[in-house]
Nucleic acid binder design. Sequence first.
DNA 1: AACGTGACCCTAG
DNA 2: ACTAGGGCCACGT
Length: 128
Amino acid sequence: MKTPTAPPPATPPAERNFFQDVHEVVRLIPPGRVSTYGAIAHYLGARQGSRAVGYALNAANIDAVTLRREAPVPAHRVINRLGQLTGRHHFPTPTAMQERLEAEGVRVEDDTVVEFEKLFWDPAKELE
DNA sequence: AACGTGACCCTAG
DNA sequence: ACTAGGGCCACGT
């Protein structure tokens, strides 16, 4: 008995797919509203995982294009906490994000959502 | 397997 | 008030 016992609790407590969960929440964002990476991350229980949210959205966009999913993720409604369209460069065209937002009635000036705080859609408060 | 990168956010000095 | 640094999550090489 060299090793008396070594039961490694190799059991991931929560194996929920993070980026898929992100897609779910982002899809719930109604048109004309915007949310933030931090809010979504916080709602998912990982307020420090904001970066992963952006990564998930990037994957979502690629998925939507590659797999042509029926329910594409409206990534254009997700911005940073400052209301800036930080991810505009990752869209097909640099202005696609702004165009889509304006098409929904969201005014964008200088790559920043106007009255972003009023249009802010917090899943933790809307969905609760 | 380890390092580095990225559509971020928060805390400290 | 501003600047600097660290931290967490996931993925690619």
